[in-house]
Amino acid sequence: MRAVVFDRPHHFRVMDVDDPRPRPEQVRLRTVATGICGTDRHLLAGGFMARFPLIPGHEIVAEVESLGECVAGLSIGDLVAVDNTVLCGHCAPCRRDQPLYCDHFFSLGVNGPGGFADLLVARAEKCFPLDGLEPMTAVLTEPLACAIHGADVLALRPGSDVLLFGAGPTGLLLAQLLVHGGAARVTVAAPSPHKLDVARHLGADETVRMDRSDPQASLRRLRALAPSGFDAVIEATGAPAVLAMCPEMTRTGGTVLVYGMAGADDTVPFSPYEIFSRELTIKGSFAQTHRFDRALLFLRTGRIRTDGIITDRFPLERFGDALSAVAGSTSVKAVVMG
């Protein structure tokens, strides 16, 4: 089969590799669509959980091609969204009901073979039938599941005034969750006018264009919207410089949510006295597990909309073009088609 292989930092090939074989509790899947994520760029650089060689791709929609001998509840030909997380269930974090921090955490496309390939294998219980949901909508199940985890961590109070930095795919999904989850107002700030247009289309109450050449002017516009600060400020870009601005934009007693993934060696200068004296809360949102059922329900009901998010589609052999597209200002989400 063909697969994208990250064989060392900053280098990949599209090449022929052996077809995977399912174990008794697994299914073999033929990939239909796999989303490009910012995490893929971190992995290609050798960051996060990268183990080379790696077949990346963790936002997966696929068709069941064959069944392991112990599999029930799925049929050949079923279209499924694949939960990429595999947890041991018996380590100390799992026993403490913290499965996201499983000592043996295994993630398809992150530290195990993923969806940028013709075929992959997955545990049967991690395959969620689409039941008529369009694949190009279902391909956003995994990023929406991550956004749901972020909303769970934030635990927003009804009537809150929320600022979200970043209008990438998960930022746009998270903004919608906040709109439906009790926020009185959601403001999205980002440098791309096109992405801000999408944010407005999907329900953001206010948008502010961040001018990279004059960030202070952009912050003044945000302060004019909320002179006393926002109840919750969410950093969804992964840029340390943006996170550094978040405490000053947060109301006394408010919360900063670190949602975007920065580099492992990045640091941000905070004033401990400001956190102490204004009783600010800083939370992190890492990934997702056990969120696929809720994500699929949101997508099936249309409560979370996806129109305008997927802007680019590429065949597997043009994986490099897909990576380049998501670095642009007009591309929101790129998908590699099987």
Rank of each mutant, 00 (worst) to 15 (best):
T301S: 15
C91V: 13
F270N: 00
A117G: 07
G338W: 01
R300M: 08
G254Q: 11
D83I: 06
K283S: 05
N84F: 14
A138T: 06
V82Y: 05
F12E: 01
A217E: 06
G168K: 04
V326S: 09
A138S: 08
V5L: 13
D307S: 11
T267F: 11
L196Q: 06
L67H: 01
H11A: 14
S271I: 02
H149G: 05
G284F: 00
S192Q: 08
V27Q: 05
K195S: 00
T85E: 08
T39S: 14
P240I: 09
G253V: 06
E59I: 01
S271L: 05
A226T: 09
T306E: 04
L257I: 09
S228M: 14
A50T: 15
E142M: 09
T237E: 10
S331D: 10
T281R: 15
P129Q: 09
D19L: 12
R123T: 00
C88M: 09
Y101Q: 06
T141I: 05
P227V: 07
L154T: 03
V121G: 12
V268I: 10
F286H: 02
C88E: 07
V332G: 04
G46F: 03
A117W: 04
A295M: 03
V27M: 05
L296K: 04
G168W: 03
D211Q: 02
R209D: 02
F292C: 03
G114Q: 06
I76V: 15
V179G: 06
D19H: 14
F319E: 10
R13D: 13
L67G: 02
T306Q: 10
L178E: 01
A62Y: 11
L156W: 03
Q98V: 11
P93A: 00
Q288W: 10
H201S: 15
E69W: 12
G302R: 02
A184S: 15
R41W: 01
A334C: 08
E206V: 12
